[in-house]
């Protein structure tokens, strides 16, 4: 089964930093599967925002290192590592990151 665009873009990252990137540089930040590649991500973004005629200029990805986290007492555990994709787009009107779900 082929991956749908929604399989690739797990969720938008909604943080202060992401909003700043969104507002100032017209970038969108997503969480993506660890095995997703940049081409897939580009296609997925263009597919999802196709009614807004979004052209993706560039995709950058990174793997976010797991943060140490201790749950109550006991040994130190950690959060999952995950892949973050920063997509630079060109659109007719800016896309507000807070409004996409």
């Amino acid at each position: 089964m082929s991956k749908t665009p929604y399989d690739i873009l797990i969720r938008p990252v909604l943080t202060e930093k992401a909003v700043k990137l969104n507002e100032k540089e017209g970038k969108l930040v997503f969480e993506v599967p660890l095995d997703a590649n940049k081409i897939e991500i580009r296609k997925a973004v263009e597919e999802i925002f196709k009614d807004k005629k979004v052209k993706v200029k560039s995709v950058r990805t990174m793997i976010v290192k797991p943060k140490p986290k201790r749950v109550g007492f006991g040994p130190l555990g950690h959060k999952k590592r995950w892949k973050k994709a920063i997509v630079r787009i060109e659109a007719e009107e800016p896309i507000n990151i807070a409004e996409i779900i």
Partner: peptide, 8 residues
């Protein structure tokens, strides 16, 4: 929190 986020 930016206004745009609150508004959304």
């Amino acid at each position: 929190i930016p206004d745009s986020v609150v508004r959304a």
